[in-house]
């Protein structure tokens, strides 16, 4: 087997989701190469070359690759594909955007969001918001796969010494133009890889009240998450959404506050090690999956918890 990993990075540093994706590649077995596509991203290639289990780093560096649009990435993957049996990307908005475009150009049926490797051609993936797990077997000659990072351990970011090969990038496709980015700035740990996540829902009631959640999160060194209802209501930015159609998290501790526990929300957090729910409705469905449930008004319980920790 020869496996190509599409690295996720911001031209400066490599995202940990890439390390989990390599974790899945290790399970498949075989030589593992990484392609780094971006602009002025030599430092990323350097970092990639040090990741354990990596055989070779391919660096595709050009000005028009700066924003890593799917239209520009896909042709590069297509060009590299013939040397590989598997091409893996993280199942993040980056990987979900780019990989299917390459898969269609290669006439391959992508396998999305795998959570386990059964064999070189058979994988498990959640369907129906995680209410069922499908085992699927691919008959395609190249398997294009996105990997759910909570399903696989990250490999070590150090210990490797792979060679870096420069890829000669062709002309830009120029189908789309980057206008702007509005990224949420935060000193807190990243939601998808945090050890502790404190999430608020509609019950929190307003953007101002989300202060309570933030204080508790900061006390615990936690990342902040939210339900769709909290995002829709504008209490927090979109990238805080946990769930079927938001981010998937599996921290050691997940604290759900004022969240009812709709299946779409559970889909994003039910693999957390320990789940705490604080809700004033003792019949809220979230309690059926919580290890520790506290039936209480969050406006009393959360400040008290924050103070006593």
């Amino acid at each position: 087997m020869s496996i190509l990993i599409l690295a996720e990075h911001d031209n400066v540093s490599i995202k940990t989701t890439t390390l989990n994706t390599i974790g899945a590649a290790v399970k498949i077995g075989g030589d593992i190469d990484i392609v780094v596509i971006g602009s002025n991203c030599g430092v990323v290639a350097e970092a990639a070359s040090k990741i354990s289990n990596v055989n070779k780093v391919i660096l595709a560096d050009a000005e028009h690759l700066k924003h890593q649009t799917a239209e520009e990435i896909a042709p590069i993957i297509v060009d590299l594909a013939k040397s590989y049996s598997h091409i893996l990307a993280p199942a993040t908005t980056f990987g979900k955007n780019a990989l299917p475009r390459a898969a269609a150009l290669l006439d391959m049926q992508q396998i999305s969001d795998i959570i386990s490797v059964e064999s070189v051609d058979t994988f498990k993936r959640p369907v129906y918001a995680g209410n069922a797990i499908a085992t699927v077997q691919s008959s395609d000659s190249i398997k294009l796969i996105t990997v759910r990072s909570t399903g696989f351990d990250a490999v070590d970011a150090t210990g490797g010494s792979a060679e870096i090969e420069n890829y000669s990038v062709g002309a830009a496709v120029n189908l789309s133009k980057f206008i702007k980015q509005e990224f949420t700035k935060s000193e807190r740990p990243e939601l998808s890889s945090a050890k502790i996540v404190v999430s608020g829902g509609r019950g929190v009631g307003s953007k101002e009240n989300f202060d309570l959640i933030e204080k508790l999160a900061d006390k615990l060194g936690a990342a902040i998450g939210a339900s769709r209802a909290a995002v829709d209501a504008g209490y927090v930015p979109n990238d805080y959404q946990v769930g079927q159609t938001g981010k998937i998290v599996a921290p050691d501790l997940y604290i759900a506050i004022g969240i009812s526990g709709a299946i779409q929300h559970l889909a994003g957090m039910k693999d957390s090690k320990v789940i705490v729910a604080i809700n004033k409705d003792e019949d809220a469905p979230i309690f059926s999956i919580a290890d520790y449930g506290l039936v209480a008004d969050l406006f009393d319980a959360v400040p008290e918890l924050e103070e006593k920790l």
Binding site: N131, I133, S138, I275, V295
Partner: peptide, 22 residues
């Protein structure tokens, strides 16, 4: 091209307990 070998319900999560207070 992507044959369904099997579909299964996920491992159910065991319900926990209710705590009395903070």
């Amino acid at each position: 091209r992507m044959k369904i070998v099997n579909i299964a319900e996920p491992q159910p999560r065991k319900g926990g307990i209710k705590v009395d207070n903070v």
